[in-house]
Simulated assay, not measured.
Amino acid sequence: MAYDSIEDAFHFVSDAPPGERSAVVHRLTGQVFIASLKAGYDQRPAGSEADPDYLTIPHRKDLDPGKPLVLEFIQNYCPRELARVEALFARPGAFRHVKDLLRRQNLLDSWQVFEDQRIEALLRHWCATQGLSV
């Protein structure tokens, strides 16, 4: 089964608000089918939602560890900022403020690489727990 197809579908689903786009993968063939409510198309086979041979591809929000991921990055890359970043999470807009801090520290590119690697690992773990060999 091609991981790239699942990853592409994951990004397709995650590039919109939760529920706006969806995708399923057929467990046996690895074929991926996508749908977009806003765009008005649906490639998913009829009945795939209830068929155990089809798995719904998760949205990033379903996998994203959020705050723990940010704190892990800060601990590894700029531990002196840990208390400040933890305090940011007590207020609204924490992720925006963290990104501003990372930009000032010239760590935004490192954050993107770190985040992308962790999300890929989480998606691969999801595949493994679903019995998909990729």
Score class of each variant (00 low, 15 high):
A94H: 02
R60N: 06
D62R: 11
E81P: 01
I74K: 01
R80L: 09
H59S: 07
A50C: 12
L55W: 02
P45D: 02
A90E: 14
G66A: 13
R91S: 12
P45H: 07
I74T: 05
V70N: 06
P45S: 08
A90V: 11
G66N: 14
V85Q: 03
E72Y: 04
I57G: 03
E49K: 12
P92L: 13
L55G: 06
Y77M: 12
G40R: 02
H97P: 03
V98G: 01
V98Y: 00
H97Q: 15
P65D: 15
L82A: 08
L55Q: 02
E81R: 09
L63W: 08
R60G: 14
R96T: 12
N76T: 11
D62K: 14
G66M: 10
K38Y: 12
R44D: 06
P58E: 01
D42Y: 04
G66E: 15
K61F: 12
L63M: 07
Y54Q: 10
E86M: 05
T56F: 13
P58N: 02
I57L: 11
A90S: 14
R96Q: 14
K38V: 08
P65A: 11
F73E: 10
E72Q: 15
D51G: 08
L63S: 06
Y54H: 13
V85A: 03
H59V: 01
R80G: 04
D42T: 01
R60I: 14
R96Y: 09
H59K: 04
I74W: 00
G47L: 06
F95Q: 13
T56P: 06
L88C: 08
A83C: 04
P45R: 06
R80V: 07
I74Y: 00
G93C: 07
Y41N: 00
P68E: 07
L88T: 04
E86S: 09
Q43N: 12
D51K: 13
R44G: 01
P58G: 02
Y41K: 00
V85I: 09
Q75I: 06
A90L: 14
H97K: 12
E86A: 04
L88H: 04
Q43P: 03
Q43L: 10
Y41A: 00
L88D: 07
E49P: 02
P52K: 12
K67G: 04
L63F: 06
I74H: 00
V98S: 02
S48Q: 08
D53H: 12
L71F: 00
P58I: 10
C78L: 12
L82N: 09
Y41E: 00
L63P: 03
G66D: 15
L88A: 10
L69A: 14
A46C: 11
G93R: 07
H59D: 04
Q43V: 03
E72V: 11
G93A: 05
I74P: 01
F89M: 07
D42P: 00
K61Q: 15
P52R: 11
Y54L: 13
Y54C: 13
D53R: 15
T56A: 15
A94V: 03
P79W: 00
F73A: 10
A50W: 14
L71K: 05
P52Y: 10
D62T: 12
A87E: 13
G93M: 07
E49A: 13
V70Y: 00
D64P: 05
A83E: 14
L55D: 01
G93Y: 08
R91I: 09
P52C: 08
V98W: 00
